[in-house]
């Protein structure tokens, strides 16, 4: 077991090196940092809502940049190995194919943790400049962003285990768009389309596909009265734990299917 974890870590460490030595990653992170800095300017234009603007724009930037990285790096985790033929030298090494795949995912997950941590610290710094506080609600919101990015990576890994990077990116992005709008789709299925076959199909689809809305819930309402927001009333750690379990189970299922497909694949 420990030996297996060591092999997975060897691949993860290599994947982490690969992603962190990719200059595109730095450009994207710089973009997020620039967005946070720009929020300082926007904050000045607002009426006593400086910190609110910084928090909203910072979280949105973190989520958007993280999504682009998770999507494009995620779909390339396997396809790059195949295109560059590095898989020919690594698969014959003393490791099982599932360890290789898990290592790739863990390496990417570590990259995402570092990425979100760097962006969160930057956001905290920008907030401190404006005299705002990077409170516990912000940390919960950032944890949810991180979990969402990990689930996106797991989906990207699943699709890239059997299709090209372009198709994988398209499939993953489509599922993300559907998942982010799951509340609206469910409302449509139980409202206008209620009782119709289309409504039943839509309800089944929204139940099966990943619910990305659950990870980015600012503006949503839990009890019909209170609107969730990191500024006033936000979800507690219990909700974060629940969503973490959901991401773990859904992401785990994606990786399990990817492993099954990857195990029988010919590398010609």
């Amino acid at each position: 077991m420990i030996e297996s974890l060591q092999r997975i870590w060897a691949i993860a460490l290599n994947t982490f090196r690969e992603t962190t030595r990719n200059r595109v990653l730095y450009v994207l992170v710089l973009f997020a940092v620039a967005l946070m800095a720009f929020s300082l300017v926007l904050g000045q234009l607002s009426l006593h809502e400086n910190t609110r603007v910084i928090k909203d724009l910072g979280l949105a930037g973190m989520s958007a940049v993280g999504l682009v990285i998770a999507l494009f790096v995620g779909v390339n985790l396997l396809s790059k190995e195949l295109d560059r033929k590095t898989v020919f030298f690594v698969i014959p090494k003393p490791l099982d194919r599932h360890e290789f795949l898990l290592g790739k995912f863990v390496g990417m997950a570590v990259t995402l943790v570092v990425l979100v941590a760097v962006m969160s610290l930057t956001l905290a710094g920008v907030l401190a400049i404006e005299g705002g506080s990077h409170n516990i609600a912000m940390i919960r919101a950032e944890a949810l962003v991180l979990l969402e990015l990990m689930l996106v990576t797991a989906l990207a890994l699943l699709f890239s285990s059997f299709s090209s990077p372009y198709l994988s990116a398209m499939f993953t992005a489509s599922l993300w768009v559907i998942g982010r709008n799951s509340v609206e789709l469910r409302t449509l299925a139980s409202g206008k389309l209620a009782g119709t076959p289309a409504g039943a199909v839509l309800e089944t689809i929204t139940a099966l596909l990943p619910d990305f809305h659950a990870f980015y819930i600012s503006g949503a309402s839990i009890d019909g009265d209170t609107t969730l927001s990191v500024h006033e009333s936000f979800v507690g750690w219990g909700y974060v734990a629940e969503i973490a379990l959901y991401a773990f189970l859904y992401g785990g299922m994606c990786i399990a299917v990817a492993i099954v497909l990857f195990r029988r694949r010919d590398f010609t």
Binding site: R17, K85, F88, F89
Partner: peptide, 9 residues
Amino acid sequence: PENPYFYDY
């Protein structure tokens, strides 16, 4: 492997 390709980074 033939014409080996490694992680060039």
